[in-house]
Structure formats: structure tokens, C-alpha cells
């Protein structure tokens, strides 16, 4: 069964459509990159799938059932800038938040949850920082903590919003090897990505999005100049300067 099935999803603010009749099936066990210009609706797509904003029409199924009944299967890494990092808490605590969905009302995270959280921190190379206050972490370290939190959610499908923005090269490598590890475990990961140079290298599949679905498929099939032109509006002067042809599939 497909991990995520999006059918005919339309999201609009007032009259203005932000996502238009998006329909796609996410293949299981793949790393899927989502690319598109600013304001294309990439974050909105993730939020619509997670039920964080109302959709005008359409349905989303996670393994054949509505999201509400499948919450535990889904992990979420929001944009790093969406929270206040001055919040008085430490890295381990943030990662433990990933367990809250499993714990339920009125109960506290137990030993088992702490062990899972520590393991998640270890996986992102942040074990020594467990008790470090989040305000004292660098951008890359904050991103790793967010990833560890998603790992602690112990999900089967992950949604990550721009995890590579503003991180150092080491963190970028660490994230990539983590993504590949998740893939090896058969998990499905959808990643909003902003750097066209690395799409071909990082992702098995690519979703090109600009209000409408431009293309979805194996990267070597869909990541073409033609599709990029469609996504970015034909004005490839920007693509020409940004994109080394070798990073794009030649059609």
C-alpha cells in the first residue's frame, strides 16, 4: 500500500489557490525531494497532509486511512525558523517531545522514552549535547536536534521542511546519511529542498511543485530542464547561472 495518497487536494486562502488539485501517490521506501520556487506551496503541501490547515477539497490517506487515525506513523520536521530557540529547554527535552504522541495524556516520558531520545541524538551525532540548552546550539545543531526529534517519533513516513537551510557542510552530510539510513530501513521520506544542484545526488524521486504538480517520478526521469522551466516559469536565466548542466538530467 502507498504510504501517502494525495487525491485532488486544493488549498486556497480566500479566493487565491495555493495548491491546485494535487494528486499523487508516494512510493514506499524512497527519498523524495520536493522542489519549486518560493511561495510554490511546498510548506503548505506538508501542512495540508498533516491536517494543520484546512483543505478546500480533496483527501489525504496515510497507508489507506485518514491522517487522524495514523498520527503515530508520521514524523514531522518543521522549518527551523518556525520556533523560538530562546525557549528554556535543552536538546534532550526537545527530542523527547517526539515521544509525546506515543505517551498520551497525563503521563510523563519514561526511561524507555529517554533511551529512545538519547539514541536518536546519538544517530545525529549530538549525544554529547543532550543537556545543552537549545539557545546555545548553532543552526546546524538545532537542525540535528529537530531531526533527532523526528527519529524519536519512530515513524514510517517522514515530512521534512527545508532541513538543509542554513546548516554547515558537516550537518548536511550527516542529514544525508541519516536519510539514507531511514531509506534502508524501508521508511519513506519527503524532503522540501531548495538547492537544485544536489537534487540529483540526494533524492531517488522528485516532486516538482508550483501551485500545481508539475511532475513526480524517479529523479532521473523528471528532473529535466524542461520540467524545471515549467516549474520556475521559463525564466531560466536564473537557472542557467545557478545550475551546472551536469546536475540536471539531459532529455
Amino acid at each position: 500500500m502507498n504510504p501517502v495518497k494525495v487525491s485532488n487536494v486544493t488549498v486556497a486562502y480566500d479566493r487565491k489557490p495555493v495548491l491546485q488539485e494535487i494528486t499523487f501517490d508516494m512510493p514506499e521506501g524512497k527519498l523524495i525531494g520536493v522542489v519549486g520556487p518560493n511561495g510554490a506551496g511546498k510548506s503548505t503541501l506538508i501542512k495540508a497532509i498533516l491536517g494543520l490547515i484546512p483543505t478546500a477539497s480533496g483527501t489525504v490517506d496515510i497507508y489507506g486511512k485518514p491522517y487522524k487515525s495514523q498520527r503515530k506513523l508520521v514524523g514531522y520536521v518543521p522549518q527551523r525558523g518556525s520556533v523560538d530557540w530562546d525557549f528554556p529547554t535543552n536538546a534532550l527535552d526537545v527530542v523527547l517531545m517526539g515521544r509525546y504522541g506515543h505517551i498520551g495524556w497525563f503521563r510523563r516520558p519514561g526511561k524507555k522514552d529517554t533511551a529512545i531520545a538519547l539514541q536518536a541524538l546519538d544517530k545525529v551525532g549530538m549525544k554529547e549535547y543532550a543537556s545543552r540548552q537549545i539557545s546555545q546550539l548553532s543552526g546546524g545543531q538545532q537542525q540535528r536536534v529537530f531531526l533527532a526529534r523526528a527519529l524519536a517519533q519512530d515513524a514510517t513516513v517522514y515530512f521534512m521542511d527545508e532541513p538543509f537551510v542554513g546548516v554547515d557542510a558537516a550537518t548536511e552530510k550527516a542529514i544525508i546519511s541519516l536519510l539514507n539510513e531511514l531509506k534502508a530501513q524501508g521508511k519513506t521520506v519527503l524532503v522540501v529542498h531548495h538547492d537544485l544542484q544536489t537534487v540529483k545526488e540526494y533524492f531517488d524521486w522528485t516532486l516538482l511543485l508550483n501551485k500545481r504538480k508539475i511532475a513526480l517520478g524517479p529523479t532521473e526521469e523528471v528532473f529535466t530542464i524542461d520540467n524545471l522551466q515549467k516549474t520556475y516559469g521559463g525564466r531560466l536565466s536564473f537557472l542557467d547561472t545557478q545550475l551546472d548542466p551536469s546536475h540536471v538530467v539531459q532529455s
Binding site: 501542512k47 498533516l50 508520521v74 514531522y76 518543521p78 529547554t89 517531545m97 504522541g101
Partner: peptide, 9 residues
């Protein structure tokens, strides 16, 4: 800390 994550779970 993170209302979006909170309502997602």
C-alpha cells in the same frame, strides 16, 4: 514551544 508540531501529533 512548537504549536505546529503539537497539533500535528
Amino acid at each position: 514551544f512548537d504549536p505546529a508540531m503539537a497539533s500535528a501529533i
